[in-house]
Design a protein around this nucleic acid. Structure first.
Lengths: 202, 202
DNA sequence: GTCTATATGTAGATAGAC
DNA sequence: GTCTATCTACATATAGAC
């Protein structure tokens, strides 16, 4: 077996592919563009990843799944619903700030191939259980109104993800710069949990 | 000039193209697939629309812009913020129920080519003014808390659009059928305005 | 492991018959 | 207006030298 050298090339390919796939989507991505961005040629790209599909999966498993997974993990070990909501929103917005194109990319690929991304989706099932339990407990303590917890979860994810998905529309319609958009996201770390909790508090 | 016969072919092309573009996006769409879906061949497709770009624009202008426009129009002539929110949400969800793939399609194309869709975005500017005025008036009457109206608009659109954008993720993670998803959307016509108004009511 | 060159398939677009 | 056949360009993928 080869000693553990710097696998810089494979690393560079994955980073490049990740960038291009996220920018252009699966169909819009050209292997040439990935090769260029990685500073190599197409042949070498195919040497590391036999074909486009496997390259895509490599990117997905390697980075995207993990990044989304750690958003879900922010729910684990929480004792109180409101605290969990704050943690989840903060984790979501922070991860997406690092990777503003990610939500749209995910949405696309999940639509394109729902089966292929099952593993990715399942990654959140455990945390979903935690969330449902916290809602149920808060309800029993009379802290929140009677609300469908699944719908609540949809609302939370909507408020986190949508600004990134509709970013060009938002910046244009409100006539704000990218910098102002960034500030808006920072504000939302506080305002979104407030918005949600005001809605559900008994 | 030719007499006004049934322009069924152009019509059929536009419907087919609309369906495929929405399913596959610009990059993922094959002219062959559009031709098949319209029951014609590629040559005839190019006869009616010189190239893919023009076909895309034809679809966009013809259907998508109009459909989104009438969501914005639901705000016009409203006298009270809460009423406006209810009308907007209802219009949004009804239009998207007819066309569940539309929000993701729009999000993609606005990201792909922000300049090209400026006209589409501008279509909502007038209604945006109406909305801002209603927020301001409600604030003066002391009916709502002090909230950034732009952020409120983002939240409303998020709660309307996101379920459709994340639909496969939602149906899978909550283990619900398409029929249950449809029922959830119907419920949201009521629950989303309630959710929003509870948040902002003084 | 990395390159150049090339094979193979396919998509967009046109020519020209009917 | 609609078709068949074809051109051209380009994208994925492989062969083979170094």
């Amino acid at each position: 077996m080869a000693p553990v050298k710097e696998e810089t090339t494979e690393q560079r390919i994955l980073e490049a592919a990740r960038a291009v796939f996220i920018r252009k989507g699966m169909a819009g991505t050209r292997m040439q563009e990935v090769a260029d961005e990685a500073g190599i040629n197409k042949a070498l790209l195919h040497y590391y990843f036999r074909d486009k599909q496997r390259l895509f999966e490599g990117v997905f498993k390697g980075g995207v799944e993990k990044q989304f997974g750690c958003i879900w993990d922010s729910l684990k070990g929480r004792e109180h619903l409101f605290e969990a909501i704050e943690a989840f929103v903060a984790a979501y917005l922070d991860r997406m700030t690092e990777n503003p194109q990610l939500p749209l990319f995910i949405a696309n690929e999940v639509n394109r191939d729902p089966e292929g991304l099952r593993a990715f989706i399942d990654r959140g099932m455990e945390s979903r259980q935690v969330f449902l339990r916290l809602v149920s407990e808060a309800r029993e303590r009379g802290e929140i109104i009677d609300i469908d917890p699944r719908e609540l979860l949809v609302n939370i994810m909507a408020l986190c993800a949508h600004p990134f998905i509709a970013r060009p529309m938002i910046t244009h319609i409100h006539g704000i710069t990218d910098e102002a958009f960034r500030r808006m996201i920072i504000k939302r770390r506080k305002s979104v949990p407030e918005f949600i909790i005001r809605s559900i508090r008994a």
